[in-house]
Design a protein around this nucleic acid. Structure first.
Lengths: 139, 139
DNA sequence: TGAAATTATTTTCCAAGTCAACTAAAATTA
DNA sequence: TAATTTTAGTTGACTTGGAAAATAATTTCA
């Protein structure tokens, strides 16, 4: 099915699965006109208030400068707004707007649907094993 | 350790592991001044001759326009060269140069070292299970 | 305290990626 | 076989990403 040269590298197996999964999720999100990472940001903000840019960047797996620019776009789309932190004036606390929360819920459905499709390729045992193994590789 | 909102999504677990692995490999490759994908291209060319651009794009997990431009750079770095395919004049067969093969071998060492590090986080059984599960998710 | 070091975020500048349109060759079919 | 469609690859306009520098607030500690 594909070139033999790279099979055998864990990093390649991981990249292959990631690419496949990422592509299908992004295809679904396209109609929402929002990046996958933007949705992740909104989910994080929804469950944990007063997240800083730094904490968010780690959580959603992007670098700080990339986050800054993505947040600029989200602000101009009215999804979030910036608030200077009380305790430390260098920090920014992002706040989800009502529109943001609304959009987040719409998008969540699609991501969950897609995750269902993925999960359907594995049985229950395999799912938890996979999550566990991926976690071991993460840092 | 990290925000709860996204745990539970396979897509996120996968993205997290991929990000971690990708970042550490890319850090190693930095000194070679070559992209990870460029190395993958060279490995593919080394084991299978007369690969077309289309086949390569799939193998190394990038889109055709991205591949075209990456190959432009590789050509001007003297790593590969383009050859119009005999059988079908629309197709391109990439050829690895001597310099390309040499560089490939140097880089391979680093990628293998990094893969060793990753593999060290899992025991033998887990490694093959992981590869198998990732394969099931890929398409 | 106040100069120096550290931390959080953004900006700048440039490299790389994407989508859609384009060129050219091959395959189809009427 | 000539017109049409399909396929392979590239180009162009535009967007996004990244490294390093810049800005600004906080901490450290002499």
């Amino acid at each position: 099915m594909q070139n033999k040269a790279l099979d055998g590298y864990i990093s390649y197996a991981l990249a292959t699965a990631h690419r496949s999964v990422d592509t299908s999720i992004k295809a679904r999100l396209k109609k929402h006109g929002v990046q996958l990472e933007a949705w992740r940001i909104m989910e994080c903000l929804d469950t944990e208030n007063h997240l800083t840019m730094g904490a968010l960047a780690k959580a959603v797996l992007i670098n700080p400068p990339t986050l800054s620019k993505l947040v600029d776009r989200m602000v101009s789309d009215g999804l979030v707004h910036r608030l200077i932190a009380e305790s430390d004036h260098r920090q920014i606390n992002l706040m989800l707007t009502d529109l943001g929360r609304h959009r987040m819920l719409q998008i969540r459905k699609d991501v969950e649907d897609q995750d269902e499709v993925l999960i359907g390729k594995l049985d229950g045992r395999e799912q938890s094993v996979l999550i566990d193994l991926l976690f071991k590789l993460s840092n």
